[in-house]
Nucleic acid binder design. Structure first.
Length: 174
DNA sequence: CCCTGATTCGC
DNA sequence: GCGAATCAGG
């Protein structure tokens, strides 16, 4: 993936709007959050909403000899078609109250970062599929996200973030 | 554990 | 220039 003009522009925009590097990476698609951060730095766009200060970096430790773990395979090139809504791509959801306290579903409450949904029906859910609901439960097109949720919760990482992160984000920007 | 951005450095 | 690995922190 190369940094085309449009992608850079979108990056700038999303960064300026306060999205996190990983969120931006997810929206751009095909890049890691590190790539986004690296690009941001190269563009000299650092320093936005405080997250972590910059005291002073140390240099990397040249790992030689004593094999202390091998990262080996890391990468996540998920071939996805991102809906490039160039123009009105803003909005992070904002919770004023409990994430799940609602007994009804907001029709258009998920425009955040989730790259793709698998539109699973209820019967197709397994223990490892994201159970984030989409749509009106009373409607026929009601479905679930269905992405791999791992074993650490009922949602995939994106929806888990939607549901649970806002609180900790709030705590961090204390 | 999850996450965040920052930095270094091999490519 | 790019981004993975790493670091430092919440």
């Amino acid at each position: 993936m190369n940094w085309t003009d449009e992608r850079v522009e979108l990056l700038k925009k999303l960064w300026a709007e306060g999205l996190s590097a990983s969120q931006i990476a997810a929206q751009l698609g095909g890049v890691s959050r590190n790539a986004v951060i690296g690009k941001v730095h190269r563009l000299k766009l650092s320093g936005r909403g405080r997250a972590t200060a910059a005291p002073a970096r140390q240099k990397k430790a040249a790992s030689s000899g004593t094999g202390t773990a091998k990262p080996a395979a890391r990468a996540a090139s998920t071939p996805r078609h991102v809906t490039s809504s160039v123009g009105a791509t803003a909005l992070q959801v904002q919770f004023d109250a409990e994430p799940v306290a609602r007994s009804y579903v907001r029709p258009e409450a998920d425009n955040v970062v989730v790259p793709i949904s698998r539109h699973l029906q209820l019967v197709e859910l397994t223990e490892r599929t994201c159970k984030w609901p989409n749509g009106d439960p009373l409607s026929e097109d009601f479905h679930f996200c269905g992405n791999d949720a791992g074993e650490s919760g009922p949602y995939c990482r994106y929806h888990a973030r939607l549901a649970f992160q806002p609180a900790s984000e709030r705590r961090r920007s204390r």
